[in-house]
Amino acid sequence: MPLIRLSATTSLLTAVAAGALLVGCSAEVKVEKSTPKLSSDKLATTVAEKLAARTGQAKPNITCPEDLEGKVDTTTRCKLTADDGSTLGVTVTVTGVDGNKINFDVKADNTPTPAPS
């Protein structure tokens, strides 16, 4: 019977997918317009911090392609990239807005995408 070994990267992605399928988050933002926005950089940092706290793993490399607009049910897709180049999609959904505070949930995909060959 063959022995299957998981790399540390695969273990990290598995931990994120299993342990952080849904994480509630919020962030303070500076209101310059009638609708608050959270910059893509701040969103990526907040998501990474929340996933790290939830899984007990090191802070993952998260990138978000766009700012998050503070309107309920607005979504954006971010990406967690592991050291070996494999990725895991992360959906961020706005659940509420209270003044300049945007509350959102984070849901990681169940299956990572392997690194390109």
Score class of each variant (00 low, 15 high):
L13G: 00
A53W: 05
A15V: 01
N103C: 01
T35V: 15
K101H: 00
S7F: 08
A115N: 04
A53Y: 06
A58G: 06
T93S: 02
A53F: 04
I102V: 09
L51G: 01
D73M: 07
V29R: 07
S34A: 12
P36C: 06
A108T: 13
G24S: 12
T63D: 08
D83R: 09
L22I: 13
V90R: 03
L88Y: 03
T45M: 12
V29E: 07
K79P: 04
G70S: 04
T93Y: 01
K50C: 10
A108P: 05
N110H: 08
V106D: 00
K101M: 02
T75R: 15
A18P: 02
T91M: 10
P116W: 02
A108G: 01
S26K: 14
T95H: 02
G56K: 07
S11N: 12
V23K: 00
S34M: 10
T55S: 03
V29P: 04
T81I: 00
I4W: 05
T55C: 05
A44I: 12
K59D: 02
T74E: 09
N61C: 02
S117F: 11
L80H: 10
D84P: 05
G99F: 11
P116R: 05
M1K: 09
P114F: 08
S26C: 12
E69I: 10
P112R: 01
G56P: 07
T55R: 05
A58I: 06
L68F: 11
C64L: 11
K79R: 14
V72S: 05
A82S: 11
D84I: 02
T74I: 01
L43A: 15
S86C: 03
V31W: 06
E32Q: 06
P112F: 10
L80A: 13
P60M: 07
G96W: 08
K107M: 01
L43C: 13
I4F: 07
L22Q: 11
K42N: 11
G96K: 14
R77T: 15
L21A: 12
I4G: 03
P36W: 06
T113E: 08
V106A: 00
A15H: 03
S26A: 14
V106P: 01
A8C: 01
S39M: 10
K59N: 09
L22F: 10
